[in-house]
Design a protein around this nucleic acid. Sequence first.
DNA 1: GTACAGTACTTGAACATTCAACCATAAGCA
DNA 2: TGCTTATGGTTGAATGTTCAAGTACTGTAC
Lengths: 166, 166
Amino acid sequence: MAPETDDAVEWLDDDEMQSWMAVVAMLGALPSALDGQLKRDVGVNHFEYSILAGLSASPDHTLAMSDLAGVVFGSLSRLSHAVGRLEKRGWVVRCGTEAGRHQATRLTDLGRAELEVGAPSHVREVRRLLIDPLTSEEFHQLGEISRKVLDAVDPKRAADIRRLFH
Amino acid sequence: MAPETDDAVEWLDDDEMQSWMAVVAMLGALPSALDGQLKRDVGVNHFEYSILAGLSASPDHTLAMSDLAGVVFGSLSRLSHAVGRLEKRGWVVRCGTEAGRHQATRLTDLGRAELEVGAPSHVREVRRLLIDPLTSEEFHQLGEISRKVLDAVDPKRAADIRRLFH
DNA sequence: GTACAGTACTTGAACATTCAACCATAAGCA
DNA sequence: TGCTTATGGTTGAATGTTCAAGTACTGTAC
């Protein structure tokens, strides 16, 4: 069933297994912790928050759906659903740009205000859970490691990340 | 709205922002890549796979639900739903242990067989996406970093992880 | 022994995500 | 111009997760 090109699979040794378990546990726990904080304090999940933040960082607070998808790293479908939810609250509007051009999404003043209220507590939580427990070298290393892994998992996204910072 | 104890929030500087973005992207991409591989090659998601693996590593291939929850790091509710799905396929059975004792779950022979078929391709994918792109020092560091972050996010789970390896 | 809290687990509804169509516009090419 | 394919975006159904009860057993205090 598996697409095997080589029968011999090197199993994980004890040391690798221990690291792997820690990574899996972190991978499971950190996103849900950040999600929980945002849900409590801002009322949106992390993906929706990224949408708001992405729009807020754009000129005119407006972005086409596919550009937005590139910024928040999600599928167009997921994005469409999420934007629909945010639109219902009045935090964003879809502005079908004039003359049949493609659909764009703009952050409303209300959305911008909510983001500004929520951002500090979110940054604080990111510091508390991820940055403060690590030395600054460790955090920097984590960044590099993440880029390398991302290169293996999804080279296109990795390139996007790099391009964001020239 | 946010539970602020100190108004001054230190924003992320450019370097921190760059690392943070990479981490977020990796956090989003790696789990779904692993999920996808398992779905394709084994037909279960990562959480269900962990359940099979957790049971398989236990004496008698049997574990009480709460012990299993401790091993796979998920809520009891999520676990109950997932076990229900696996039970429908005949990969596990719930054995309401005799004499009113608590519920336990056991891996069936079928489930064990499927796990054995699927495990090599999964290990291969973990190596390809996470271990091979990194130097062994980096992978080791990632393990340490994950433990530290987990300590901040969920100390109980972090202790569980450490206990698994004495 | 009965009341009371706590642990272990299940269930159903609400919500989010994925997946597979589906429409509309844009672009390549005969 | 007219056909075809690609791109951008939406939608609804299926699947998975979370959340809030709810049930059943276990222990403790009186």
